[in-house]
């Protein structure tokens, strides 16, 4: 299995308003890392998701978002803070 780059936020990045995003499966293949810190221009989850979409070509994958290990049904009106865990998930394939 290919080991993908994994990063965590350090204290300086927290001050700089960065947030940690985790990627899995087919998504991690597109992003070429299993996690990264991105600069968040706003606290809206929707804006952060738009940033991810503009950075990577993910349109061909039916993806889901999880905030603190819970699937987000609608991303509208949700605010995130620095210690939240955001994950981008491709279709599930267990079993």
């Amino acid at each position: 299995m290919k080991k993908l780059k994994q990063v965590q936020l350090d204290d300086n990045q927290k001050k700089e308003n960065m947030i940690n995003i985790k990627y899995f499966g087919a998504i991690a293949e597109v992003t070429n890392c299993s996690s990264e810190n991105i600069k968040k221009s706003s606290s809206s989850l929707n804006d952060i998701i738009q940033e991810i979409y503009s950075k990577y070509d993910l349109k061909h994958i039916p993806l889901k978002f999880a905030l603190n290990q819970k699937i987000i049904e609608t991303t509208e009106g949700i605010d995130v803070n620095i210690n939240d865990e955001i994950a981008v998930l491709p279709p599930f394939a267990g079993g």
């Binding site: 899995f24 499966g25 087919a26 994950a87 998930l89 491709p90 279709p91 599930f92 394939a93 079993g95």
Partner: peptide, 19 residues
Amino acid sequence: VPIFGKEIFEDQDYQWKEN
């Protein structure tokens, strides 16, 4: 459950599995 699967073919090509 967020489990992901890569189906690997005999020629080492692959596709991502979807339930």
